[in-house]
Simulated assay, not measured.
Amino acid sequence: MNINSSKIQQTFGKAALFVLMALALVCMPKPADAQTRIRDLASVAGVRSNPVYGYGIVIGLDGTGDQTTQTPFTTQSIVAMLQQSGINLPPGANLQLKNVASVMVTGNLPAFAQPGQAIDVTVSSIGNAKSLRGGMLLMTPLKGADGQVYALAQGQLIVGGAGASAAGSKTVINHLSAGRIPNGAMVERAVATPFNLGESLQLELHSTDFSNAIRVAEAINNTMGPNVAQALDGRIVRVRAPSNPNDRVAFLAKVQELSISKAMGTAKVIVNARTGSVVMNQAVMLESCAVAHGNLTVKITATPVVSQPAPFSQGETVVAQQADIQISESGGELIEIKGAAQLSDVVKALNALGATPSDLISILQAMQTAGSLKAELEVI
């Protein structure tokens, strides 16, 4: 019996190659799940900004202020301000203030804001001022929801727009009735926060998800020790923290840097009915279905028709409209859409329909009713 040694070597060589490839696939590390820091998933309860607002006066306008006949509160504000400065106007004085405007000043106190800290404010006209460009905001107390003054605002406005008018023509670029004052307000009172109160802190997830709440608690317990964190529900995670303020800050900084494997969120398709926009997240899935979609077009053409009376009939010429109505429907081809579990595949399947965004809204609603669209459809 003759045996070809070269063929045996080739056979064993191929077998060894397949074995090595199989071992490489087995030993190949699995792709790591997407890691998300806790600071990107949750915030600390009570650590937030606080809105403040106040009524103020802007002066120094170039004739573009409020018309005092239509905004009497502007005149009343100026009279009260002058009286506080020791200037008493005669009764019935007719003030023509073209360089003054009444405004509302708004801002946000950041978390842990302290007296002496500067914050940005936005100044918006509440009267009929044409422009706030070049104006100066007089000292305006900014109050919180409790009616207490937390900041004082004053400074030169920055308005991003421009405008000009002459001989009845007017051109405006951007918005002239609002502006900003960078670092225009000084904090006068700090807002109390519960950060250093109690034995524990609460982490609030940005969106309700029981899986993420459990994963956050497990990550903290695995790093900081057992029973340090406890998931109370799908949104709140209670964390035991050191009582010393310095240790508590360091503890929370370390907790926020911990990473977890973020759970897949709720599948959602957001539809804006006004603009026709359609947005879907990565959790959206499709099951196989068949879709046929056609367009219905209605065309109406109006043609003027002139009817002339007979000679010497003393009739009148009549102009009428003759309407021509045409209805056409384009054929909708039945298209099979295969099931897709990834967002890129879902987009490819929907693009195969060739539908406009407005048509896509109707298609998605029908697909959800049929059970093919595995997502929550929300119309805003």
Rank of each mutant, 00 (worst) to 15 (best):
Q76P: 02
L296S: 08
A192R: 12
A320E: 14
R215T: 03
L252H: 00
L23R: 02
Q84Y: 10
Q117F: 02
L360I: 06
S344H: 07
A22T: 15
R235L: 08
A42G: 03
A80L: 06
L258D: 06
M264H: 00
T171Q: 12
T193W: 01
G161P: 07
E287N: 15
V379I: 15
L89M: 14
I119W: 03
S102I: 06
F312Y: 15
V187H: 04
I335D: 00
G265I: 02
A190F: 06
D209L: 07
L25G: 13
S307A: 12
P141L: 02
I300P: 01
S124K: 05
D209G: 03
F312Q: 13
G144S: 05
V172T: 15
I181W: 05
A341Y: 09
D62R: 07
Q321K: 10
M139D: 07
P182N: 12
V187G: 01
P31V: 14
A22V: 15
I38C: 03
Q322C: 02
S211K: 12
P304G: 04
G127I: 03
G56E: 01
V103N: 05
Q342N: 15
K170L: 13
F12H: 05
K299I: 13
P311C: 01
P141W: 00
E204W: 10
S288V: 03
T356I: 06
P91W: 05
T64I: 04
G63H: 07
V271C: 08
L157G: 00
G63Q: 07
R180Y: 06
N272W: 06
L152M: 14
A219I: 07
I3T: 07
N4I: 10
K98P: 01
S125G: 02
